[in-house]
């Protein structure tokens, strides 16, 4: 449908007014407040930008990471974008291991920022754009409550490059600091040894850090026994982490992939505590004829 210019201006201002209201007030459902937050003040054609799905959870509730662990479910988003716009996958911060014996889940707590890159088309000639999304989540404490919300964010279209929203700079920096990093020079390998998976992380030459402990969170849900202790130690120049397979008789996967979260940042001057790990598996001959009889 085509509107005349005055009508369009009226509609646009009306939509903008509504959207401003929506952006100013996150949708609160019980212990969760949900909203979309843009990193930039405006959008420019053909210039990808970042939007956060922000879930603010009251204590002691938690949502879940992509691999929720023994139970639970990660938040999901279904974008409703104008034709020509596309959205990347939600990028999750590293989780926290939440032990409720005999279970272990991988949770997200407090102020949760899930980032997505939105790519506008090159031929977007409107004065604004409405980004809408249907969002589902599950939060649990002693019990679980699902929630959903239809979120909307309207942004004006401006010149490239779009200016960052000064009120959100610190929040997006903090959100990025919680994403798994891929610093140069690290290499990873995995092997099965005496019924355990062993992840070896080799820091770059000149690495001055001394990580006291780290935890591994696999992307795949059925790879390791989530509630089993993980043994971390320095092994010469490298680090070594032993994990208990979910099924020690299972065929080896190609990779041991996930995030390796240190108790502190990996490098002075960098905020990142999580490394994104893709460790190819190499089968190592067992040390003895009966490896299963050798308790580790």
């Amino acid at each position: 449908m085509r509107y005349g210019a005055p009508m369009r201006a009226l509609l646009t201002s009306w939509i903008l007014a509504l959207a401003t209201l929506a952006a100013a007030a996150p949708i609160r459902i019980g212990p969760v407040a949900a909203e979309l937050v843009a990193e930039t003040k405006s959008v420019a054609p053909d210039q990808p930008f970042t939007v956060a799905l922000r879930l603010t959870l009251d204590a002691p509730w938690h949502a879940y990471w992509t691999n929720p662990g023994d139970s639970g479910l990660a938040p999901s988003i279904e974008w409703k974008l104008p034709d020509g716009f596309s959205a990347g996958e939600l990028q999750f911060p590293y989780p926290r291991a939440i032990a409720t014996p005999p279970f272990m889940t991988y949770g997200l707590e407090g102020d949760v920022w899930l980032l997505a890159t939105i790519a506008p088309p090159s031929d977007w000639n409107e004065t604004s754009v409405v980004l809408a999304a249907a969002v589902d989540w599950l939060i649990c404490d002693e019990y679980c409550v699902p929630g959903s919300a239809d979120l909307e964010l309207t942004l004006p279209v401006g010149a490239a490059p779009a200016e960052p929203d000064p009120t959100q700079v610190a929040a997006f920096a903090a959100a990025r600091a919680r994403l798994p990093a891929e610093p140069d020079g690290w290499t990873y390998r995995a092997q099965r040894e005496n019924g355990r998976y062993v992840l070896t992380a080799v820091p770059p030459a000149g690495f001055a850090g001394d990580m006291p402990a780290a935890e591994f969170f696999p992307f795949a849900e059925n790879l390791i026994r989530h509630n089993a202790p993980q043994a971390w130690r320095r092994d010469g120049a490298a680090y070594r982490l032993e994990l208990v397979p979910a099924d020690s008789a299972a065929p080896l996967p190609e990779h041991l992939s996930g995030v390796l979260v240190g108790t502190e940042p990996w490098r002075a001057g960098s905020p990142h505590r999580a490394l994104r790990v893709v460790a190819p598996f190499a089968e190592v001959p067992p040390r003895s004829a009966n490896p299963e009889r050798n308790p580790p």
């Binding site: 139970s71 002693e142 019990y143 679980c144």
Partner: peptide, 8 residues
């Protein structure tokens, strides 16, 4: 992998 709430 079963999905759901944890057994209480």
């Amino acid at each position: 992998k079963p999905y759901g709430c944890s057994v209480k």
